[in-house]
Structures are given as C-alpha cells and as structure tokens.
C-alpha cells in the first residue's frame, strides 16, 4: 500500500469496509448515539422553557432556584455530572438506576442515567437560550395580544413564544450539534453508544487510526445532516415571517469568491432583538458563488 511503503501502517481495506459496511454493533452504537441526543435535546428544550418562564416568575425563590440550577450545571464538567448521576447517587444510596422493560424493549440503566444527565445539563443551557429569545420579542407584541383581550398566558403561548422560536432555533442547533458529539462521554458509564463500540472494535483489531477515523466520519455525517435540517427549519420559519431568503447551499462558505449579495432580502421585520441576538436568526444576505 502507498502508506505502508512510507513506513506508516494504514489498513485501507479495513477502513473502507468499516466505513461502508459497518458491523451491527457499530450501527447499534450509532443508533444509541442518535436517540440519546434526540431524546435528551427534546426533553431539555421542554425543561428549558419551564426554566425560562420560572426565571421570569414573580416568585423570588423560584427565580433563585433557576439561577442556582443554571450556575451548577453550566459550571461543572458534564463528565463529572454523568458519573455523579450514575455512580455517585448509587454509591450514596440515594438512587440506583435499574433496567426498565417496555414490552420486549429494555432501556438499560446506564442509558437512563445518560438521558437524565444530558437532559438536566442541556436544560440549563436551553433555559438561558429561551430566556434571551423571549426577551428578544418586542414587548409591544405582548401588549398587542393583550389589547385583543388575551390573558397573559394566552399572549405568551399564542404570540410571544411562537415568535421566540425564530431566535431559539439557531443556538438550539448549535447545542444539538454539540450534544451529538458529547454523547460519546456516556461511554465512561458504559453506554454502548458509537464511541464505546469503536473502542471495543479497536481493542479487538488494533486498527486504531482506521476505526477512530471511521467514527469521526460518522459523527461528521450526523452533524452535517443536522446542519441541513437546521437550515431547512430556519428557512421555513423565515417564510412564516414573510421574509424571503434564498436557500443556503452547502457551498455558501465559498462566499469570499462570489459577489456579495447586494439586494436586500425582503424587509427586515420590525422587531429586532437586543444586541446580543443581533445576527441570530435574522435573514442572511444572499451570498455564495451560485446564489
């Protein structure tokens, strides 16, 4: 092989077969990675919304709780949180995760612990994202809703929260990208996700570089696919706002070659967020070589 003649060892056929025909174990690991990330992100978004609303509450202890929660979960390593939730709580006799059977389907204890930890950790971040997004919605929107006789709850639910979604999606997308990669940490408590399976393949084949390169490519594929989905969601939201935006194609990062878009994209909506959110979820200038 080309590489071995240079004194390097790269088992190309092992690499290629692992990439194109991954083992069942590897695919199961991939599946675990995906559902861990999706479930944790979904639950974290719901809890994050509750945290954001609690942070705006009139009840001071509730606000203090959210502050402390956010401070703790954002200020300590996710890895330590995982070990504390799974091993620490059991060792201290506080809570021990057990396998749960749902029909013929078994949710292993380690997977439960991982979902709980990732959810609680990500909820701290989502709480901050949603809080910022809610305050980015023009207060006049809330008043307009109230002026038509909506209760404060209706005004939030029907008018403010749907508009905040536009400010939530871009940072949520970034977080979900990180979440898919961070699920590899669950390997330390023994969750058979993609990284742990890769380690196991490595220890039986010793093709270290090849198999980790395959894993890296699969993670890259996951985050890339998510990038497309995220763009599609953002475009869909912009359409809901009546803001035309050309489809963002994957080659748009070649914008430095192309002409800068000169035409303005629709009219920007009257409500721009505060400076911290400027540029988030706002219509992009058309750019890119082919646009």
């Amino acid at each position: 092989m080309l590489f071995s003649t240079a004194g390097l060892h790269f088992d190309y056929s092992f690499f290629w077969s692992s990439l194109v025909h991954p083992s069942t174990a590897f695919l199961q690991g991939l599946e675990t990675t995906v559902y861990l990330a999706v479930i944790a992100q979904a639950l974290a978004t719901i809890i994050g919304l509750l945290l954001a609303l609690a942070r705006r509450s009139k009840i001071a202890p509730l606000r203090a709780f959210v502050w402390i929660y956010t401070w703790m979960f954002r200020g300590t390593p996710l890895l330590i949180q995982l070990v504390i939730v799974y091993d620490g709580l059991a060792a201290a006799g506080i809570y021990t995760f057990n396998n749960i059977s749902v029909g013929s389907f078994v949710i292993p204890s380690v997977v439960q612990a991982a979902i709980v930890t990732f959810t609680l950790n990500e909820a701290a971040y989502m709480g901050e994202i949603i809080r910022a997004a809610l305050s980015a919605v023009d207060p006049g929107q809330f008043e307009a809703a109230m002026s038509t006789g909506m209760s404060p709850g209706q005004a939030m639910r029907l008018v403010v929260v749907p508009q905040a979604v536009r400010f939530i999606v871009p940072p949520l997308g970034n977080d979900f990208n990180a979440m898919m990669k961070n699920t590899s940490l669950a390997s330390v408590i023994g969750v058979s996700e993609m990284f742990l399976v890769t380690q196991e393949i490595n220890s039986s084949t010793f093709n270290t570089f090849e198999i980790y390169a395959v894993a890296a490519i699969y993670y890259l594929a996951l985050t890339t696919v998510w990038g497309f989905i995220q763009s599609a969601i953002e475009r869909r939201i912009d359409r809901r706002w009546g803001i035309a935006r050309p489809p963002r194609s994957w080659w748009s990062w070649t914008s430095s070659w192309g002409r800068r878009g000169v035409e303005t994209v629709g009219a920007t909506a009257g409500t721009e967020g505060p400076a911290i959110l400027q540029g988030v979820g706002r219509p992009r200038e058309p750019r890119g070589f082919f646009e």
Binding site: A144, G149, M150, S151, Q163, R240, A269
Partner: peptide, 24 residues
C-alpha cells in the same frame, strides 16, 4: 384578576404607534 382584565380589554380596541402586528 388578569382574566377579568382581559375580558374588559376585549371590548376596547387599541391601535399602537408602532402597529405591533404579529410578524409571523
């Protein structure tokens, strides 16, 4: 209570300087 105030506001139209239309 907020719900009672909301019922009263339903009878009163309000037109804002900056329109405050729902952009979405």
């Amino acid at each position: 209570r907020a719900s009672a105030i909301a019922r009263q506001r339903a009878e009163i139209g309000f037109v804002f300087q900056h329109f405050n239309l729902y952009p979405n």
